[in-house]
Design a binder for these strands. Sequence first.
DNA 1: TGATATCCTACCTGTCAGGTAGGTATTGAC
DNA 2: GTCAATACCTACCTGACAGGTAGGATATCA
Lengths: 163, 163
Amino acid sequence: MMFSTKAEYGVRVMVELSRRNGDGPVSLSEIAQHDGLPLAYLEHLVARLRKAGLVESRRGARGGYLLARPADQITMAEVVEALEGSIAPIECISEGADGVLTCSRETDPDHICPTKLLWTRVRGSVVTTLQEMKLSDLCQTSRSRTSTSARKTARSSVASTSP
Amino acid sequence: MMFSTKAEYGVRVMVELSRRNGDGPVSLSEIAQHDGLPLAYLEHLVARLRKAGLVESRRGARGGYLLARPADQITMAEVVEALEGSIAPIECISEGADGVLTCSRETDPDHICPTKLLWTRVRGSVVTTLQEMKLSDLCQTSRSRTSTSARKTARSSVASTSP
DNA sequence: TGATATCCTACCTGTCAGGTAGGTATTGAC
DNA sequence: GTCAATACCTACCTGACAGGTAGGATATCA
């Protein structure tokens, strides 16, 4: 498994917020009930999303959460990174402040880690995929299920990605 | 983090076997010492590689492990999958026997999981990257540095793994 | 003044990555 | 034939952390 339920649940929260965008603040308890997820745990996750500037909150009665930006301006890379932390395929690969990837086992500059190429490329493909996908892309899927013809397309497109 | 040290260490073992291909069986203790990895733990990992048909073993004195196939015929997808199990970006996504990806939260056929598209695509990009990269691609990197002094590099690599 | 929400901190708890330990079976070299 | 070196196997340990709970403080609306 590559990501924990933090990403899974958090993405679901973002999708729900996006679908109800414009209806005013959405309370976490509504989302928790709708998706069958533990409310107290979602509070931790949405705190990360808020600190990352992806959602805004309204306290008090009738409060809740809203998207900080339109859904088509939020990349899934931002969402996943806010929830899971910096995306690295493996512990020894980490991204420095300058954005350069380094391998912790590569202390000696003469000794180039032969596996670094692999993990760097894996990371790149994941980050690119997450950056290209916008939150709005996921909501079109969930919206389209209201019509029968669109449902078929959604299912087949998902199934076609198997190797 | 997306993969554990099982993948990290296991890939290193495969790279070492590939580099010494043709020199006869390579013992695990040699590799463990060269890369500064715990021998007893590598035994577990190499058992997975053997069961997956990626390496062959020779028991007894002067025994060890060899690549079961030429390095350019071994994809990193095979290696990583042997070590980590089926590649899934998240717990709720799994690959059935027929190769079709399913979401465990998608019990009701009318309710299509809106996040499935995301995780399916992430998985696809990772699998594609791993399939396109061959074991031989990693060894070309590590070969390029052996021209100066392989022995010196070997010693320093052991020392560098302390953190 | 409640009811309803976010927000914050602390704590719990089972699982599992990562590793150790100790033994058995097999083989080559002397 | 014995010995050393190796793979092979099973069981166990242990700290960290994912995943979640608990309880209260704070803010806001009706």
